[in-house]
Design a protein around this nucleic acid. Structure first.
Lengths: 211, 211
DNA sequence: AATTTATTGTTAATTAATTAACAGCAAAAG
DNA sequence: CTTTTGCTGTTAATTAATTAACAATAAATT
């Protein structure tokens, strides 16, 4: 799978590849070596056609009547999603959410690493969270340069979102994942992803109500 | 806006309505009374056409050259998204994530209320988190019935996801928001939404790498 | 009072995402 | 050895979502 082709993978396919990989890793841990498209589909609540289509797009082929080789697929998805060298991540805001993310994520992917945490609370500074050291927020620019961090996760109170976003942009960050409910604007060369739990919850509530 | 029409609102529009409302509430808090489609668009990182289209779909009309009345729009979105009576929510798993969600959400929406929290840790049971009482997990079915809870948020360790999902389904829950990385299957009459932070992070990492 | 400007509302066009349809074929069954 | 079965890979069709285009018009400007 060459780089030219990867660029044109649909966004939704990128998301699903990440999900497939997690599902496949679990299956592998359970001792499975092969898997059918309809099995992946059931796990992910999608159709088998969609799974096969995504797999087609990344240029992998399974074995007729035997399914897909799990190890091969994990490795191929890694070639697509992962960077060759480790991508370092900073997490800003060590409240419950920041700690939850750090705890959940640390050690999960070899090519993605939470390299630093930041907060303003003196009690937290110097402490380690799941092995990640917490620095004072006024160190962000320095540490980001030192540790070659390219991605920032914002988990501060939403009153601080914009300030932090500006610092991150100034520090030359390449991607931001904003978990606060305050949407931000970033320059074109910074990739931005935002998630607000309220949207998901209100959506569930809406469809429950409509039943 | 009658119920028949609401059913046919595109899923993406539902999500955006939730986001518009939050943006509008913020603007309102800042003393604004009217807003243009392109202003909403900028906040949400989408196009003005899309905003106008969504607004058209919900049957609201603005004033030419004056924009949309913020209070009216908030109220209309409420009529669409919110249920007439309060929808009660249970959150299962009072780890960092569960606490973060409870803290962030409590008191945010008058028609959605976190009515109970659950955990197995004796230290947590009986405690209140942002005013929400924490019960032992073996009380789920009882409390869900008693408090008329229709939505469950799962934030337990992923080893426990399926057990909890099964309890929730058994208790007659109508909607599940699964924040654990283990995908679950539910009967057709239960609305399911899943979110895994890893997908967002790997997506950001991918587009950063591809820059 | 006429003209320009800025904005809404909506239809049409386009693009993105999903699903249907089916040929090809290896393995299993008869 | 022939037929059936069940799965893959792919093209074509469909559906969903977004964007373009523009008429209508109130307000601002000349």
């Amino acid at each position: 799978m060459d780089k030219r082709k990867m660029k044109y993978l649909p966004h939704k396919t990128i998301e699903r590849l990440s999900q497939y990989r997690r599902a496949l890793l679990l299956c592998q841990a359970n001792g499975k070596t092969h898997i059918f498209s309809h099995e992946i589909a059931t796990i992910q609540h999608i159709t088998a056609v969609q799974v096969r289509r995504d797999i087609m797009l990344i240029g992998y082929t399974g074995t007729l009547r035997k399914g897909y080789n799990i190890a091969d697929m994990i490795s191929l998805i890694g070639k697509i999603l992962d960077s060759e060298k480790v991508q370092n991540i900073a997490i800003i805001g060590m409240g419950n959410l920041g700690v939850a993310i750090t705890k959940y994520f640390s050690g999960k992917r070899t090519k993605l690493e939470i390299a630093a945490a930041f907060d303003v609370n003196p009690v937290k500074i110097g402490k380690k969270y799941s092995g990640v050291e917490c620095y004072h927020i006024n160190q962000i620019i320095k540490i980001i340069k030192e540790k070659d961090i390219s991605i920032g996760i914002i988990t501060v109170p939403s009153t601080e979102t914009i300030i932090i976003k500006n610092i991150l942009v100034k520090s030359g960050i390449k991607g931001i994942l904003n978990y606060t409910p305050k949407p931000v604007n970033v320059p074109d060369d910074v990739y931005l992803e935002e998630y607000d739990m309220t949207t998901s919850l209100e959506k569930v509530a809406f469809f429950v109500k409509m039943h």
